[in-house]
Amino acid sequence: MKILSTFFLCLFLVSSANAQERFLTKKGMISFFSETPIENIEAQNNQVLSIVDANSGKMAIAILMKSFMFKKALMQEHFNENYVESDKYPKAIFKGDIIDFDSITASETTLAIKGDLTIHGKTKEITINAVTKKTDEVIQMKGNFFINLTDFDVKIPSVVKNNISEKIKVSFRLYHKAYKK
């Protein structure tokens, strides 16, 4: 009987804790920037889904590739058709752990996030620094990092080799709010 009650208590605590300690955004911003002497290319996605579990310090991000908006419609079409192949690989995914998540405070602190980034069907482990901030209601994260297109098997044809950088700067701004089911 005692065991049974402990079991239900644990179950209750676990499930309720999970439900309250998750922070989610559906309007996260991720942009990328390619800089070459000939041309700068940038695109922004304002519909990024991201979730942080404040119990475990784990986080997950889902990015719909077709939601990246470019200045030139033709660039956007080429991005989806020829480079990231959005029909085949519709999403980019990040799954990782916020290191030393317990040290997060209501003032801005830089924390490292380590995890697996999957773009174009290829996965690579990366570590990102993010400026973070947590209150009871929100978890904010922002920062930027670089990725190499070769790591994700995104090929640049030789004719536009000088127009597209191999190294792409990625910026993010994720303002999670307390998530209730």
Partner: peptide, 12 residues
């Protein structure tokens, strides 16, 4: 966590 994101993703 990813399943929740899947669930929360708006139908576009």
């Amino acid at each position: 966590l990813l399943d929740i994101l899947e669930l929360e993703a708006p139908v576009q």
